[in-house]
């Protein structure tokens, strides 16, 4: 296997890690030095030749090859068997519907929220439960991190240069979960998006940070969603938000399951109950202009259509918390994308 990338020599492993820092290849945390044997194991696990182009980022005129993906996957601390998930996520980054340049560059500060579905999530022992967005699981931590390092190192999305986030958020280190398909009230997310249950798939969405909401009083979907909608209604920007992910954890999952609510019912309820009046938007300074008589009665939706809510089942079994995750920018700027994860 012939690697094409430039190489550098370090006297030992500790100094190799320091060399990675010195060359600007890390997110601030230590990395695993990308040696030839580690890179080749990554490529073999995905069944890809080093020069295989996985994505072409149009705005940056950057070709992302399997070799560069493998190098960054090593840096991130991935096991070789994670590599097909990362490859699929990079394919999704290159999809024109995702529109890489906008969310990667914007002052709006989005991260790449990734949801893994299918048998591979269980095989890799990805977390879909307790401490869902927190630390502790190698595949969640390192797959998401590998995607960020590819964005940084290979596509050139460097903070302060072509990543102009005003604030960013911690999900820009890693933001990767699996869905809890076994206990979900609904078919898996990827089935909802056109794949078969036994296929493996990853969904990406340009996303702000997760906002936790708590409701321990309600035993009905309407009750739980009333709290979610009240918080989402005022959470969007001046142009409203293009997408929202809704992540329902254990006890709220059970509420949905007992009531037999479908995903579409959740989406429709949220669509109707997150509408806000023009008057309120003007009061909270999310819309300009003088108040008009009809403003109190004129309602503006949060998202373009009910299908712009991504409804996901994941999170710890105990507790009355769930989360909503606002998307980034405009609907024409970036859409969520699902790609099949292929293994050799």
């Amino acid at each position: 296997m012939q690697l094409q990338s430039r190489s550098y020599d370090a006297p030992d492993m500790a100094q190799a890690i320091e060399l990675c820092y010195a060359r600007g290849w890390t997110d601030g945390l230590p990395v695993i030095p990308p040696t030839a044997d580690r890179i080749e194991s990554m490529l073999a696990a995905a069944g890809l030749a080093p020069d295989k182009q996985v994505a072409f980022i149009e705005n940056r005129q950057v070709s992302v090859t399997a070799e560069k993906i493998a190098i960054n996957a090593v840096l991130a601390g991935c096991k070789p068997e994670y590599m097909p998930v990362i490859v699929a996520a990079v394919e999704a980054l290159g999809d024109p519907l995702y529109g890489y340049h906008g969310p990667a560059t914007s002052t709006g500060g989005s991260a790449v929220f990734m949801v893994v579905n299918g048998p591979i999530a269980r095989e890799l022992e990805m977390n879909s439960g307790d401490n869902l967005f927190g630390p502790g699981w190698r595949p969640n931590a390192t797959i998401g991190r590998a995607v960020r390092l590819i964005m940084r190192n290979t596509i050139g999305t460097l903070p302060g240069e072509l990543d102009r986030s005003s604030l960013g958020h911690p999900g820009k280190y890693t933001f990767c979960i699996a869905e809890n398909e076994a206990e979900s009230p609904w078919p898996p997310l990827h089935v909802d998006r056109g794949f078969r249950r036994e296929q493996n798939a990853v969904t990406i969405m340009a996303a702000l940070g997760p906002h936790q909401f708590s409701n321990g009083l309600s035993s009905t979907p309407e009750g739980v969603l009333t709290t979610a909608c009240a918080q989402m209604r005022v959470s969007a920007g001046t142009a409203r938000q293009p997408f929202y992910a809704l992540v329902f954890a254990g006890e709220h999952m059970t509420v949905m399951k007992k009531a037999g609510w479908t995903r579409d019912q959740v989406k429709d309820y949220c669509f109707e109950n997150t509408k806000i009046s023009v008057a309120e938007l003007k009061r909270i300074k999310l819309k300009d202009g003088a108040f008009a008589a009809e403003d109190e009665k004129t309602l503006v939706p949060l998202v373009h259509s009910p299908q712009d809510f991504l409804v996901i089942a994941a999170g710890g079994a105990a507790g009355v918390q769930s989360a909503y995750i606002p998307g980034w920018g405009s609907r024409t700027g970036s859409q969520s994308v699902t790609k099949e994860i292929r293994r050799p």
Binding site: L3, S5, R6, S7, Y8, D9, A10, P11, D12, M13, Q15, A16, L19, C20, R23, W25, P33, P34, T35, A36, I39, V62, S63, K68, I71, N72, L75, L149, I150, N153, T154, G156
Partner: peptide, 12 residues
Amino acid sequence: MTVQIYDPTIEA
């Protein structure tokens, strides 16, 4: 022992 590492960035 010398460690040889590979560059994750793209070459212009």
